[in-house]
Amino acid sequence: MKVSVYRYNPETDREPSMKEYEVETNGKDLMVLEVLNLLKEQDPSLAFRRSCREGVCGSDGMNINGKNGLACITPLSEVAPGVKEGKKPLVLRPLPGLPVVRDLVVDMGVFYQQYEKVQPYLQNESPAPAIERLQTPEDRAKLDGLYECILCACCSTSCPSFWWNPDKFLGPAALLQSYRFLADSRDDATEQRLSRLDDPFSLFRCHGIMNCVSVCPKGLNPTRAIGHIRSMLLERGV
């Protein structure tokens, strides 16, 4: 099958280009990451991130035939019709909207900065008990769909609002984590957290485009989380 890969090495290339490869897959429905590993054997200079190869570490987010996803859990048959059969090329590009370091590796710095801005850690001023802080199963259930985020950046880098203002708009991933702590019955910094989200950019740049929802490899829904935060802000402000 044919694979077309975005290549850029800052030391040798003046500008990026797409390089074409031919890979023998014997018609197997490989994961995109397995195809990349075959490519890497052919051409060791190809750079990409990978770690767990089972969709839980979030290393190998990339743009696969136009859609962001994790290479390790995207089988060829799901990329686009005809890719697995070799009728159509597999096209791999780095995640859009972030600076490219090399080939499929992007500089995630600004993405992580936005994550840090939401103070992604439990805050509770009351003294800790000798055992765990009790939490009902119902309260715990509020964290489902939030805590599972793997920080792969597929969502934020598919969001136009994040493309235009990556330094001001927190992006869906960071906002999902913001709500993960707002929703935690053990966290008591709600007021402080909300007051930091009140400006016109941090949260309110979300226009409900929902690209984040359609690409999330873990099936999470950042748009809904953002809606919840907005409701909390509204309740607090009215």
């Binding site: 927190l170 400006d199 950019f201």
Partner: peptide, 18 residues
């Protein structure tokens, strides 16, 4: 976290509500 003097309400919620 972001301050902006030219937005109408200078506040995201206010702008959103308007």
């Amino acid at each position: 976290m972001v301050t902006s003097v030219t937005s109408l309400g200078r506040n995201g919620l206010y702008d959103w509500l308007i």
